[in-house]
Design a protein around this nucleic acid. Structure first.
Length: 599
RNA sequence: GGGGCGGUAGCUCAAUUGGUUAGAGUACCGGACUGUCGAUCCGGUGGUUGCGGGUUCGAGUCCCGUCCGCCUCGCCA
């Protein structure tokens, strides 16, 4: 090693010792006679002193040092003089009196410095990611990530899980997310797909007898990005044989308790709370509700049927719903103009037709431009139903069930943040269970799998597959943390006939099913144990445990919203010869057969 | 694909109703300074206001198009 110590290591007890440290110049303070340098590496910062006593040559050599120069210094550890101890630094008690300086690599003035107070724009941070990753916050996050993954591996190793790698080059299946495709040179015109998850491989491993499988697996989905979504992400992938949903949930309960203890110092009470999908939709309008605060949705459809206000009455009478929520003590915080903004929000983003509101005044009188369409007793009943107290703001959406869910979910999330209804440091873990097996696709009028086509229904719901698939509930469970889906899993179908029946419901005829999933159907027939599992988003766990507000900050080299890497400029063009090898020709823009661009 | 926000000095930002030579802090360069730690003090360099059109006597500011970044709806079994 070129160094004897890191920049975070030295303490008062090291005084008098000759040491050599290496690192980056974080800052320098030139006093003419004496020159101070804060030297930084990922372990911390140490103050170097270039004093006149060490000789003018050394001082002259140190004078041109600038931010981000990489240097190595040999010197003697000394206690700082009385009154100059820096309590902000771990090493603030000491300093290294330099005797020898070597500039390992000079750095020109960089686009930004890791130590600067104002965070540069994200495009710059991504372009010069190596500078950004020198920032203490990023280094903390990546170290947290490393420790978190290590703790997870420990957990599963202790429980006799076996880590098995599965292929990255696989086969495309049109269900689910859009695949990233890799052209085959050997098989011209054929393509591999990068895995959206190792789902089928891990099920096959169960059939192969590896009854406790775990993998930290990279996954790929070619869909549009969000603050919590990257096209390339990492899953903790788990599968077990001879288990039911309870076993998987308890396994992950234990893991979460371990992580909460290690990284938050919190004793998580187990079992973690559970709620059915139906209840989550009813109380929060979403299958991943943020349970750090209340402000639940309240159904007023029955009351709405009676009122003169047409928007409410017609929605209620025509099979729709009138639901609302009570933003406690928020009436004074939302002016007419701000409520208009909320209205734009629910109409524009969630397709609601409007937002009805009442401010609760003294004596629980409801004040609103629409109040005249309600009788005294109707207003009183509404106030009662909403648990209204003076100062509250009541908000309502009248629409189809799905629209009331989406709009009020969005509104609740937004108001929860704006009204600071929760401690941003707190973490809330819960399970959402008993998801529907199927969802009705509005366009094709076909059933689509809510989770994936290998999900087993609850045993008592088997008959429903024939009679009423929409009512069938799956043996499925999602782990929700602070309103984020941190993971999800199911018990799988382990019976060939049931699997074929589900494929049938999803509109896969036998020939197609056999062509795409023949290997699975075969494997199911050759001795498949009951099995199930779960996958957790590692990046999201890092984001949540790290208190970050986006997933990019939880990974070293993320992509932008347009799925580009600003540092390497991926994706990029390739040589004509590479394309020729693959038998691929890129269409001109005007030849692309997409909607609205006819030749 | 739709909606929204943003793009001004290397960086972070400001710039009144469309109106003088586009400013500040920081970084950088030069100078001063022996205990600072956001060092301080003095001086200086630095601008295709993302790009292309347009309106206007006059555009950082208004309009159209486009590129990039972020948030979001759709999408994400």
């Amino acid at each position: 090693m070129l160094r004897t110590h890191t920049c975070g290591q030295l303490r008062g007890t090291d005084r008098g010792r000759e040491v050599t440290v290496c690192g980056w110049v974080d800052s320098y303070r030139d006093h003419g006679g004496t020159l101070f340098v804060d030297l930084r590496d990922r372990y911390g910062k140490t103050q170097l002193v270039f004093a006149p006593e060490a000789g003018q040559d050394l001082l002259q050599q140190a004078r041109p040092l600038r931010s981000e120069d990489v240097i190595t210094v040999t010197g003697v550890v000394a206690l700082r003089p009385e009154g100059t101890v820096n309590p902000k630094l771990e090493t603030g008690e000491i300093e290294v009196r330099a005797r020898r300086l070597e500039v390992l690599n000079k750095c020109p003035s960089p686009p930004f410095t890791p130590g600067q107070a104002d965070l540069p724009g994200e495009d710059l941070r991504l372009k010069y990611r190596y500078l950004d990753l020198r920032r203490a916050a990023m280094q903390r996050t990546l170290m947290l990530r490393s420790e978190l993954v290590f703790a997870i591996r420990q957990h599963f190793a202790e429980l006799d899980f076996i880590d098995v790698e599965t292929p990255i080059l696989g086969r495309s299946t049109p269900e689910g997310a859009r695949d990233y495709l890799v052209p085959s040179r050997v098989h011209r015109g054929a393509f591999y797909a990068l895995p959206q998850s190792p789902q089928l491989y891990k099920q096959i491993l169960m059939m192969a007898g590896y009854d406790r499988y775990v993998q930290i697996a990279r996954c790929f989905r070619d869909e549009d990005l969000r603050a919590d979504r990257q096209p390339e992400f990492t899953q903790l992938d788990v599968e077990m044989s001879f288990v039911d949903a309870e076993d998987i949930i308890q396994l992950i309960d234990g893991l979460m308790a371990r992580l909460a203890k290690k990284f938050q110092g919190v004793d998580l009470p187990l079992p973690l709370p559970r709620m059915t999908y139906d209840e989550a939709m009813r109380r929060f309008g979403h299958d991943a509700p943020d349970l750090r605060f209340g402000m639940e949705l309240i159904d007023c459809t029955d009351l709405a049927k009676e009122v003169d206000f047409r928007v409410f009455r017609e929605a209620a009478q025509q099979g729709g719903f009138v639901r609302g929520m009570n933003a406690k003590a928020a009436a004074s915080r939302y002016s007419r103009k701000l409520i208009d903004e909320l209205t734009d929000f629910v109409t524009h983003d969630f397709g609601a037709k409007g937002l009805a509101w009442f401010k609760v005044e003294e004596g629980c009188q409801l004040a609103s431009p629409i109040a005249k369409n309600f009788s005294e007793s109707q207003l009183k009943n509404l106030a009662l139903r909403m648990d209204a107290e003076p100062g509250d703001l009541l908000l309502f959406v009248a629409d189809k069930w799905e629209v009331t869910c989406k709009a009020l979910y969005g509104l609740r999330k937004r108001l929860g943040a704006e009204l600071e209804l929760y401690d941003p440091q707190a973490m809330h873990f819960s399970w959402i269970v008993e998801f529907p097996m199927f969802d009705r696709d509005a366009e094709s009028q076909r059933w689509v799998a809510m989770h994936h086509p290998f999900t087993a229904p609850r045993e008592k719901d088997f008959p429903l597959l024939q009679t009423d698939p929409g009512a069938a509930r799956a043996q499925a469970y999602d782990l929700v943390i602070n309103g984020y889906e941190a993971g999800g899993g199911t018990i799988r179908i382990h019976n060939q006939a049931v699997q074929q029946q589900v494929f049938g419901l999803l509109g896969l005829d036998e020939a197609t099913a056999r062509e795409r999933f023949g290997f699975l159907l075969d494997a199911l027939s050759f001795g498949a144990p009951p099995h199930g599992g779960i996958a957790l988003g590692i990046d999201r766990l890092v984001m949540l445990f790290g208190g970050l507000d986006n997933i990019r900050d939880a990974m070293a080299f993320p992509k932008t919203q347009r799925a580009a890497d600003l540092m390497t400029e991926a994706p990029g063009s390739v040589d004509e010869t590479q394309l020729r090898d693959l038998g691929i020709r890129v269409l001109r823009e005007q030849d692309r057969p997409i909607q609205g661009r006819s030749p």
